[in-house]
């Protein structure tokens, strides 16, 4: 099934292309003109990567979906002001990164507040209990169990990384984005990106020593 995307290009020429083969910039331009199908195509292309990225940042699926929706909402609301300076993926990942980092900071503030809560003797939720749990270094019998345990440990280890290291690591090693694009997303130099990724990897390696 091929849905035609109609949009204006330079010199006021009109051309029609299949929506699947339209570039991201073309889709945003069509969205700016009020083309709902173009925006739906953008959502279809990026909903899973953005949801996955935010989930790796937060380790909270429901909140990750909410923030992914917020990301697309901002894309839609600001499509009129979008300028094709960078690639569209850089633009959308930057919005998602900012939302995720903002969420992490809010959570950190809430956690700081809970430290001063008096007479807290027992963990309030099973998640809290898991965070206090030390990794079991004894060998497991089942390979699936080992793998599951390792992945759980990896998720926890990523969660403990400082947000600036976490964003760079997830963008590079989970999402597979180039150093150059990560530098644009995080608005830092490429050297700083490499430095943060290396630091994050070393921190992960130390935390996951028992599982590697």
């Amino acid at each position: 099934m091929s849905i035609a995307l109609s949009y204006g290009i330079e010199l006021n020429l009109e051309r029609t292309i299949p929506i699947e083969s339209a570039s991201d910039h073309e889709l945003v331009a069509a969205t700016k003109e009020g083309d709902e199908l173009a925006f739906q195509e953008i959502v279809r292309r990026y909903r899973n990567p953005i949801t996955n990225f935010v989930f790796r940042m937060l380790n909270d699926y429901d909140r990750a979906v909410e923030l992914a929706q917020e990301t697309f909402l901002r894309i839609y609301a600001n499509s009129g002001r979008y300028e094709a300076t960078f690639s569209f993926s850089t633009y959308i990942y930057r919005i998602a990164t900012n939302l995720a980092i903002s969420e992490l900071r809010q959570r950190k503030r809430r956690q700081l507040f809970s430290i001063f809560t008096p007479w807290k003797t027992a963990p309030e939720s099973p998640e809290d209990e898991q965070m206090l749990d030390l990794p079991d270094t004894r060998p497991l019998q089942d390979e699936d169990l080992i793998d599951r345990e390792r992945r759980l440990a990896l998720s926890k280890a990523i969660k403990t990384l400082p947000e600036k290291y976490r964003a760079a690591l997830v963008l590079r090693d989970v999402e597979g984005i180039s150093y150059e694009n990560i530098a644009q997303i995080l608005d830092i130099s490429e050297g700083t990106v490499k430095s943060r990724i290396n630091r994050a990897r070393n921190m992960l390696r130390e935390k996951l020593q028992a599982y590697l």
Partner: peptide, 20 residues
Amino acid sequence: LQLKHLLKTEQRVSAPADFE
């Protein structure tokens, strides 16, 4: 190398069906 493999093969989550 193991860490790289773990990160690369990390199970990816998808958006829910009612996302759009």
